[in-house]
Simulated assay, not measured.
Amino acid sequence: MHKASLRKLYRAKRQALSEADWQQRCAAIQERLLAFLTTQFEPEDGFTLHTYLPIRRQREVDTYSIIAELRQRYPKLRALISRSHSDGSMRHVSWSDDVTLTDNQWGIPEPADTNHPEVNSHDIDVVLVPLLIFDKQGHRVGYGKGYYDRFLATCRPDVLAIGLSFFEPIEAISDKTPLDVPIHVCFTPFRNWYFFNHL
Rank of each mutant, 00 (worst) to 15 (best):
G142C: 09
L101E: 11
S5T: 13
T177Y: 04
Y74C: 02
E171R: 12
G142D: 05
F195C: 03
L152C: 15
H122R: 13
E31S: 12
S121K: 04
H116F: 06
T102Y: 00
L34I: 15
H198A: 07
F190D: 13
A16S: 15
A172S: 13
V185E: 07
Y194T: 03
F47D: 01
R140T: 02
S86T: 11
N197M: 01
S121D: 10
L77E: 02
T48M: 09
L164Q: 11
C186M: 06
V119E: 10
F36L: 04
Q137G: 05
K176R: 15
H2N: 15
G46I: 07
D113R: 06
L17E: 01
W193P: 00
F47T: 01
S18P: 02
A12P: 00
Q24Y: 02
T114Q: 12
P130I: 11
T188W: 08
G146M: 08
L179K: 14
R156P: 02
Y10H: 10
L80I: 01
A79E: 04
L132F: 02
A68K: 14
P54H: 10
C155K: 05
I183K: 03
F151S: 05
I108D: 10
C26N: 15
N115H: 15
H198Y: 01
R14G: 00
Y194L: 07
E118N: 08
P54N: 09
Q105K: 15
V93K: 10
S174M: 09
K3W: 09
I66T: 14
D125T: 11
H92W: 04
V61H: 05
T114A: 14
L160K: 12
S165Q: 03
V93Y: 00
Q40T: 11
I124H: 02
Q23L: 12
Y64S: 08
K76Q: 14
P157W: 10
Q15I: 00
F151C: 09
T38D: 14
L131P: 02
V61F: 08
D175A: 06
P169G: 06
H85F: 12
P130K: 09
N120Q: 13
I170K: 04
A35G: 13
D45W: 05
L37W: 04
E110C: 03
A153P: 01
V126F: 07
Q58M: 14
I81P: 01
D21S: 14
N197V: 00
R83A: 13
D113G: 07
P117Q: 08
R25Y: 12
K136N: 12
R83S: 14
W106M: 13
D113C: 10
I81G: 00
T177N: 10
I29M: 09
M90L: 15
E31W: 00
I29G: 03
L80W: 04
Y52M: 04
V119L: 09
P109G: 03
C186W: 06
N104P: 00
E42I: 03
H139W: 13
H85T: 06
P109Q: 09
L80M: 11
D180S: 11
P111T: 10
R14I: 12
D158F: 05
K3N: 00
R56E: 15
L70D: 02
T177W: 05
L199M: 06
F187G: 00
E171S: 14
Q105R: 14
